[in-house]
């Protein structure tokens, strides 16, 4: 079996009274792809933030590539090392790219930091090529590019650090259907070529099916179901997973009105 590249045990996050993430375990193997499925307020994005170090867990441990990252890093060197282990691609490439930096410059910056020395722009061009952007697009500022092209840059920038794990936080959610398909194919190709692992944070079950092998389903901070993605989607066991699956529009589907007491509450 491939090595475990990312592991979380007993992960917990409290915001005051609110328990956003409650006793979550997860494991990603080298070259694997894990989905964290859930709706808003399920805690899925909080898990992503804890894994990349944007927020510290209240309890529990996170180990990436055999090294603990549960506590905030104390040095620039440590932060850089963590960056070479796990990278993240956000939903919105409009706000996650520097508007004054061309794609090449953005990649160059990461390459110099993580791979050191002079790359002569070759590595940057290879990355652009990997994500399907040409030289002209590489020299363009983000505002001159489409949403799909920007998301390609965000993916290339994440890969520039040669991470073992890439967190995809709703990374294809804002894209048009025809562009989303291109990016999903690209992500599948990259995983095959580089052996990188994915953690996909998503509410979209079709996208989850397309690019993950394993999944955990979150509801109100807790894992309610885990297993192979195909199995969870074809034969969901937990009541909440069943509701989630039944809510996806499909041929012959009719939306159903149901009484859900939690719906009457305030936003999470």
């Amino acid at each position: 079996m491939p090595d475990v590249v990312l592991e979380a045990r007993g992960l917990r996050k409290e915001y005051g009274e609110l328990v956003a993430v409650d006793d979550v375990d997860l494991e990603v193997r080298e070259g694997g792809s894990l989905a964290i499925v859930g709706e808003s307020g399920s805690g899925k994005t909080t898990i992503a933030k804890m894994i990349v170090g944007l927020t510290a867990p209240t309890a529990g441990s996170i180990v990436a590539c055999g090294r603990d990252r549960s506590a905030p890093s104390r040095s620039a060197r440590e932060r850089r090392r963590r960056g070479s282990e796990v990278q993240i691609v956000f939903q919105d490439p409009y706000s996650s790219l520097d508007p004054r930096q061309t794609a090449e410059q953005a990649l160059d910056e990461v390459l110099r930091l993580h791979r050191g020395g002079r790359q002569g722009g070759r590595a940057a061009r290879e990355l652009l090529d990997l994500v399907g952007l040409d030289e002209r697009q590489g020299r363009a500022l983000p505002r001159a590019l489409s949403g799909g092209q920007r998301q390609r840059i965000a993916i290339a920038r994440a890969l520039a650090a040669q991470p073992r794990v890439v967190i995809l936080d709703e990374s294809v959610a804002a894209l048009d259907v025809s562009i989303q398909a291109q990016i999903l194919n690209l992500l599948a190709d990259i995983r095959e070529e580089t052996g990188v692992s994915y953690v996909l944070i998503s509410h979209d079950l079709a996208v989850v099916r397309q690019i993950t092998d394993e999944a955990i389903v979150m509801h109100r901070g807790r894992v309610v179901e885990r297993g192979s993605t195909a199995q969870i989607l074809d034969a969901p066991q937990d009541e909440y997973t069943q509701l989630l699956r039944a809510s996806v529009p499909r041929p012959g589907w009719k939306p159903e009105r149901r009484r859900r007491p939690e719906d009457q509450g305030a936003p999470a």
């Binding site: 048009d176 259907v177 025809s178 398909a181 291109q182 999903l184 194919n185 079709a206 099916r209 397309q210």
Partner: peptide
């Protein structure tokens, strides 16, 4: 054809080239 399908595992999608 470009949409992923929640009921089917497929390695690749029939993406439409270019952008809208």
């Amino acid at each position: 054809a470009a949409r992923p399908d929640v009921a089917v595992s497929a390695r690749r999608l029939a993406a439409i080239p270019g952008r809208p």
